[in-house]
């Protein structure tokens, strides 16, 4: 079972995660089918910016984060923004959408000028997240755990970050055991997705370069 304190932490994180999301009117724009390459580029850039702003607002709610060294806060966010973005996007592609929406979104991404070698791993990742049928709680916790990775470049106070990350990992571990009693490997699988995210993150800078050139 979750202790009272852990339950409170979980509720708090989930509420913050649900509250801080991309503005709906921007998300709606994505579904308008009329777009040329330039509009597409601008919209995806705007979305990415909004993603980061929302991520920062969510992160400010993580207990203890604001007490970390200010430059460490930036290093953590900078190191995790891309991974958190992929995690959030994965939700869009795995949630049941009204008919045709997923196809429009996928088409928009495929026509964005990003080369196929980067697109394929991205959709493979979305698929592997979809297979886990993650709950909102798992998404919120996994995002918080990703942000609180002590081994990001330029983080000085690694132990302070670890002290914030560990309770999140423990809540996620227990939550998985409660929700998936017949799947003892579920927690390990979730953590495995973090490794996949690292790979996507690693290729992201390369992807940006190729996109800009295109």
């Amino acid at each position: 079972e979750l202790s009272q304190e852990q339950q409170a932490l979980l509720s708090f994180i989930v509420e913050a995660y649900q509250k801080h999301r991309i503005p709906q009117d921007m998300a709606k724009k994505l579904l308008q089918e009329q777009f040329n390459a330039e509009e597409n580029f601008l919209l995806l850039t705007e979305m990415a910016t909004s993603h980061v702003q929302v991520l920062v607002e969510f992160t400010k709610n993580i207990p203890g984060f604001s007490a970390l060294d200010h430059e460490d806060q930036i290093a953590l966010l900078k190191g995790s923004a891309v991974e958190a973005m992929f995690l959030r996007s994965a939700q869009v592609f795995t949630r049941k959408q009204p008919h045709g929406h997923t196809e429009v979104l996928e088409d928009r991404i495929r026509k964005s000028g990003i080369s196929e070698e980067f697109i394929t791993p991205m959709f493979t990742f979305y698929k592997s997240i979809g297979e886990l049928q993650m709950t909102q709680e798992e998404h919120a916790l996994l995002t918080a755990i990703t942000i609180l990775s002590p081994d990001r470049p330029y983080v000085k106070g690694q132990q302070a970050v670890e002290r914030l990350q560990e309770p999140m990992l423990e809540v996620l571990r227990r939550f998985c055991a409660i929700q998936h009693p017949l799947e003892p490997q579920h927690f390990a699988r979730l953590l495995g997705r973090l490794t996949e995210l690292r790979t996507l993150n690693h290729h992201h800078a390369e992807m940006l370069t190729s996109w800009r050139m295109s």
């Binding site: 910016t49 930036i74 800078a205």
Partner: peptide, 21 residues
């Protein structure tokens, strides 16, 4: 890397609470 300059800027602004900018 240059590709990260924009990102850091957005993060710093958002951390300071200047979301409107």
């Amino acid at each position: 890397p240059a590709s990260n300059l924009g990102l850091e800027d957005i993060i710093r602004k958002a951390l300071m609470g200047n979301l409107e900018e």
